[in-house]
Design a protein around this nucleic acid. Sequence first.
RNA 1: GUGCCCGUAGCUCAGUUGGAUAGAGCAACGGACUUCUAAUCCGUAGGUCGGUGGUUCGAAUCCACCCGGGCAUGCCA
Length: 579
Amino acid sequence: MQDPTTQLSIAFSKAIVAAFGEEYAAIDPLIKPSGNPKFGDYQANVAMSLAKRVGDNPRNVAAKIVDAIDTGDWGEKLEIAGPGFINVHLKTDYLISQLAAVATDEHLGVDQASGGKVVVDYSGPNVAKEMHVGHLRSTVIGDAIARVLAFEGYNVIRQNHLGDWGTQFGMLIENLIDAGAGADTHISDLKTFYQDAKKRFDDEPEFKDRARKRVVALQGGDEKTLELWGKLIDESKRHFNHAYQLLGVLLTDDDIRAESFYNDKLPEVITALEDAGKLKESQGAKVVYPEGFKDEEGNPFPMIVCKSDGGFLYATTDLAALRYRMNDLKADRIVYVTDSRQSQHFAMVFQTVNQCHWRPDNVQLDHVAFGTVLGPDRKPFKTRSGDTVKLIDLMEEAVNRAAGVIAEKTSDLSEDDQKNVARVVGIGALKYADLSSDRIKDYVFDWDRMLALEGNTAPYLINAYVRIQSIFRKGEIDVATVDASKIQLGEDAEKTLALKLLQFGSAVQSVASSLEPHRLCTYLYELASGFHSFYEKCPVLKDGVEPDIKDSRLALSALVARTLKEGLNLLGIDVVDRM
RNA sequence: GUGCCCGUAGCUCAGUUGGAUAGAGCAACGGACUUCUAAUCCGUAGGUCGGUGGUUCGAAUCCACCCGGGCAUGCCA
């Protein structure tokens, strides 16, 4: 379906062609929702920029567009204001028919892509290492992006690039053996397991020696060693899946394509680079020189793909993974969700596949970079003792703190319900805090702020949803019985809400193209805020409300609830019916 | 040294890719509860958008140069 922005863009484009000629068909009419109601519902800002091209003053240009436009069933009134803004007042009937169309659309007015396959690479924890706060962002942001793209109609392939290979596995396997690796061994705490192995590797020469030999055995494909290695992976997956389940992300074992998956493809990468004429030698290592990268002396800056001892590096693995995703998975777009410290690395990897002409023209590569989670001291978030914060601990604390907030409020919820609300609100708050600010920036972690009922937080949004559920519960009304075509927009608060509801599609669309989930958060916050204003001003069930007004407000509320629920779902956040 | 990113109210953040008087929340102050749940709403106050130039009808947004801060900079990932 066409939202107002799309519909107006088409009408304005036609008017521009009618007024100035076919050569202006590609001009963007610059339609935006008006920031201020006194400037109408939407505005077209095209007249000012067009004025120079057609050699006329902007207000004349605006007048010609207004004369030529067919306002069809949507335009109530068009006004020219200021230097040449065209302010559009929409017909109420049009808004209502649009609301009805959105309400009957299972995608709530989100345009569906005509196919296309997108690989989203996210989370990527390391085997035998505890997931920590550093994994939160990749996992949460990546999951939201995967959900949004799937909702847009893309075929989304999630890829969890587990770190399951490398020299550290020598010490980890030896440590596992010493811990008594039996068939039913469980590692209760990955963090101490890893730290213990590391400490022994540093302190015990005998252990270090065994670890080195074990690496050779692993790389040589020794059966017993591979079995132990597999044990480590299974144990780690058990931990990861527990975290994913509590966090509520989509990742499953089927999404795992670990580093080791690419082991047998690494020699091909080197051969292919050689065939492309891009493989060079430098100080005994094999390297490529991606264009545009220079070292401190201004010389070409290498990316090492094969060490002087013959070993491969993560650049090699990433090239192999990229080739696999383009050639075997047939992806049209490949999205990497990692922290911004890897920006240069990915820029070099992407540049390399471009230079080798490995990337088909239609394939788009994106590095979705994000900043660091900071503590109150504005330094990377750590525990009091200076340790990294375990992801599990973070989630447990979120739930506990949410439970504390709930307990403060009087509530008739059962104990089980309270637990569930604490889980949904706590985890939702944690994820929303991570998603709601521009991902490229670092953000300051603050429990009180993310759990606050005011402001741009998950609890505030969930509360708006809960209030709507409360209305239907109180009125004993089945949501399925409301009819959006019966909506009336008599009050300003109702109209504001209606306009906001119609913008869900473009909000989702802008996340799909920019890969910035915070845009959806901003939208949902404005929607929830608009609902709360409406809730204050526009009684629904109270005495004295005419039946048709009541039905209208119920329909409006129902659509807000659906939009909030769907929007939060796209962010990977649940709702509850009462809190 | 070089490259990338960031700098907006006391604090935490938005700002729809160049549009109208830069917006929220917190904190401060003043209002609204026999309630469809006050877990909310309404109002007041708070700004040299790091700085200086430039581009143009118009700049927080684009370009240049500075100032601060973060990150990355060949054989870890």
